[in-house]
Amino acid sequence: MSAPVKQRRWPLIVPPLLWQLVFFVLPLLFLVVISFWSIQNFKLEPDFTLKNWSTMLSRTTFWSAYAYTWKLAFVAAFGCSLLAFPAAYSITYHLSESMRRIAVLLLIIPFFTSYLVRVYSWQVFLSDNGIINSALSLLGLDRIPMLNTAGGTLIGFLTLCLPLVVLIQVMGMSQIDRSLIEAARNLRAGPWRTVYEVIMPAMKASLVVAWLFAFILCFGDFVSPVYLGGGASPTLSTLITDTTKSGQQWPRAAVVAIMMIVTLMATSLVAVRYAYRGGRK
């Protein structure tokens, strides 16, 4: 590549690099630094102590919250992907061009309202005297505890992620060469086999990226575990708030936050590697 072309690229490369440096790398470094600081009289004091790390990593509560958060986020992301797939399939292959545009718009609309408000409104449906349980009672069925349970949290996670996952899957499916699907049908592959052996492999990267987005959002979410899960089993995000309430222990909260970031980075690396494995020819 010639030197002038390289020079012309700099104005495009520098702003995002600066953005990442100022709004991601520097705060992250600061987070790492304060995890070694101490607290005296409710104030952060520069220090170099490993006590915050040893205290947090030796607590059973931390590891229980870690496992619970991971499990919830994994199940929610997996459930989201499963539920989203038929919707994405219908939007991509069964709707006309104009209807597809409307469907995509409808998927974007939930993001216009606050997530917190949407989660609060779920309480009206999920509470013991709420709409769903009242309907069950009318039908002579037993009430099902939904609010303040892990199930409630999962419903909140779906509210957060499902539209986004459908959108990513729609975009992925739209990129698939339709002649591949027609070829599969001509070769007498049934609809399930076409989905499993043609569509899913062709959009593997989109499926994984959609799952990853859902996992990342659920892993760090604070709202659903608190307002639909009742905070009954702490997730890592609730553990961060609990820790800061404990005499301003921001350094210990920083340890939890770093562990979350490391986990998400590792998960992302594995997921992206899997998504593109064997895909480049």
Partner: peptide
């Protein structure tokens, strides 16, 4: 026995709804 752990808003709505 515990249903959960709530902030002001959660306590308020939990008591109001009878949850």
């Amino acid at each position: 026995q515990a249903a959960g752990f709530f902030d002001y808003g959660g306590t308020f709505s939990g008591l109001k709804s009878g949850q």
